[in-house]
Protein backbone atom coordinates (compact mmCIF):
# COMPACT_ATOMS: atom_id res chain seq x y z
CA UNK A 1 0.00 0.00 0.00
CA UNK A 2 1.31 3.43 -0.94
CA UNK A 3 0.95 5.89 1.85
CA UNK A 4 1.53 9.67 1.92
CA UNK A 5 2.31 11.37 5.24
CA UNK A 6 1.73 15.14 5.39
CA UNK A 7 2.93 16.63 8.67
CA UNK A 8 5.24 19.51 9.54
CA UNK A 9 6.65 17.63 12.53
CA UNK A 10 9.61 15.54 11.40
CA UNK A 11 9.41 13.15 14.33
CA UNK A 12 5.78 12.36 13.59
CA UNK A 13 6.62 11.64 9.93
CA UNK A 14 9.59 9.59 10.89
CA UNK A 15 7.84 7.47 13.51
CA UNK A 16 4.78 6.84 11.33
CA UNK A 17 7.01 6.09 8.40
CA UNK A 18 9.06 3.61 10.39
CA UNK A 19 5.99 1.86 11.71
CA UNK A 20 4.32 1.67 8.29
CA UNK A 21 7.47 0.58 6.48
CA UNK A 22 7.86 -2.06 9.16
CA UNK A 23 4.50 -3.39 8.02
CA UNK A 24 5.68 -3.45 4.44
CA UNK A 25 4.02 -0.30 3.07
CA UNK A 26 5.49 2.27 0.66
CA UNK A 27 5.73 5.63 2.35
CA UNK A 28 6.29 9.14 0.97
CA UNK A 29 6.61 12.15 3.27
CA UNK A 30 5.67 15.80 2.81
CA UNK A 31 6.53 18.56 5.33
CA UNK A 32 3.67 20.91 4.43
CA UNK A 33 0.42 21.17 2.52
CA UNK A 34 1.85 22.27 -0.80
CA UNK A 35 4.44 19.56 -0.90
CA UNK A 36 1.76 17.13 0.13
CA UNK A 37 -0.49 18.11 -2.79
CA UNK A 38 2.43 17.83 -5.16
CA UNK A 39 3.37 14.37 -3.95
CA UNK A 40 -0.30 13.43 -4.05
CA UNK A 41 -0.36 14.36 -7.73
CA UNK A 42 2.84 12.51 -8.49
CA UNK A 43 2.59 9.34 -6.48
CA UNK A 44 -1.17 8.75 -6.29
CA UNK A 45 -1.16 7.19 -2.80
CA UNK A 46 -3.85 4.84 -1.53
CA UNK A 47 -3.89 6.44 1.90
CA UNK A 48 -2.97 9.86 3.26
CA UNK A 49 -2.08 10.79 6.86
CA UNK A 50 -2.92 14.50 6.97
CA UNK A 51 -2.15 16.86 9.84
CA UNK A 52 -4.64 19.65 10.48
CA UNK A 53 -2.43 22.50 11.60
CA UNK A 54 0.47 23.18 9.28
CA UNK A 55 2.24 26.23 7.99
CA UNK A 56 1.04 27.21 4.53
CA UNK A 57 -1.97 25.24 3.49
CA UNK A 58 -3.79 23.56 6.35
CA UNK A 59 -5.01 19.99 6.40
CA UNK A 60 -8.66 20.81 5.62
CA UNK A 61 -7.60 22.95 2.64
CA UNK A 62 -5.44 20.19 1.26
CA UNK A 63 -8.22 17.68 1.89
CA UNK A 64 -10.66 19.82 -0.07
CA UNK A 65 -8.42 19.84 -3.14
CA UNK A 66 -7.76 16.15 -2.89
CA UNK A 67 -11.42 15.36 -2.68
CA UNK A 68 -11.97 17.14 -6.00
CA UNK A 69 -9.80 14.57 -7.74
CA UNK A 70 -9.81 11.38 -5.80
CA UNK A 71 -11.62 9.10 -3.41
CA UNK A 72 -8.44 7.94 -1.76
CA UNK A 73 -8.60 7.32 1.95
CA UNK A 74 -7.57 10.22 4.19
CA UNK A 75 -6.81 10.05 7.92
CA UNK A 76 -6.94 13.47 9.56
CA UNK A 77 -4.66 13.97 12.56
CA UNK A 78 -4.75 16.80 15.09
CA UNK A 79 -2.98 17.69 18.29
CA UNK A 80 -5.51 20.41 18.94
CA UNK A 81 -8.26 18.07 19.99
CA UNK A 82 -10.65 20.76 21.00
CA UNK A 83 -11.05 22.04 17.48
CA UNK A 84 -11.72 18.83 15.55
CA UNK A 85 -13.22 15.46 16.18
CA UNK A 86 -14.39 12.46 14.24
CA UNK A 87 -17.61 14.14 13.26
CA UNK A 88 -16.11 17.30 11.77
CA UNK A 89 -13.38 15.28 10.08
CA UNK A 90 -15.95 13.06 8.35
CA UNK A 91 -17.89 16.12 7.27
CA UNK A 92 -14.78 17.49 5.59
CA UNK A 93 -14.43 14.30 3.63
CA UNK A 94 -11.87 12.46 5.74
CA UNK A 95 -12.30 8.78 6.43
CA UNK A 96 -10.90 8.76 9.94
CA UNK A 97 -9.87 11.17 12.70
CA UNK A 98 -6.92 10.39 14.94
CA UNK A 99 -6.15 12.74 17.83
CA UNK A 100 -2.55 13.36 18.63
CA UNK A 101 -0.66 12.29 20.60
CA UNK A 102 -1.21 8.64 19.71
CA UNK A 103 -1.52 6.28 22.60
CA UNK A 104 -0.06 3.51 20.50
CA UNK A 105 1.43 4.01 17.06
CA UNK A 106 0.72 0.41 16.08
CA UNK A 107 -2.92 0.79 16.89
CA UNK A 108 -2.99 3.73 14.46
CA UNK A 109 -1.26 1.67 11.80
CA UNK A 110 -3.76 -1.11 12.41
CA UNK A 111 -6.68 1.30 11.98
CA UNK A 112 -5.18 2.58 8.72
CA UNK A 113 -4.78 -0.92 7.39
CA UNK A 114 -8.37 -1.76 8.41
CA UNK A 115 -9.56 1.30 6.54
CA UNK A 116 -8.05 0.14 3.29
CA UNK A 117 -9.35 -3.35 3.53
Amino acid sequence: MKILIVDDEALVRRSLSRALKGKGHDVVEAADGNEGLQLWQNSKPDLVFLDVLMPGRTGPEVLKEMREQSEAKVILMSAFAGEHNMETALQMGANLFVPKPFEDIFAVVKMAEDLER
Binding site: S15, L16, L53, A79
Partner: peptide, 20 residues
Protein backbone atom coordinates in the same frame (compact mmCIF):
# COMPACT_ATOMS: atom_id res chain seq x y z
CA UNK B 1 -0.08 21.72 24.36
CA UNK B 2 -0.40 21.68 20.61
CA UNK B 3 3.18 22.66 20.10
CA UNK B 4 4.36 20.06 22.58
CA UNK B 5 1.99 17.39 21.50
CA UNK B 6 3.44 17.20 17.99
CA UNK B 7 6.99 16.40 18.98
CA UNK B 8 5.67 14.26 21.83
CA UNK B 9 3.58 12.28 19.38
CA UNK B 10 6.68 11.70 17.31
CA UNK B 11 8.80 10.87 20.35
CA UNK B 12 6.40 8.42 21.80
CA UNK B 13 5.52 6.82 18.51
CA UNK B 14 9.15 6.49 17.55
CA UNK B 15 10.06 4.95 20.86
CA UNK B 16 7.17 2.51 20.38
CA UNK B 17 8.50 1.63 16.90
CA UNK B 18 12.00 1.24 18.25
CA UNK B 19 10.72 -0.87 21.11
CA UNK B 20 9.35 -3.29 18.53
Amino acid sequence: AHELNNPLTGLRSLSQVLLQ
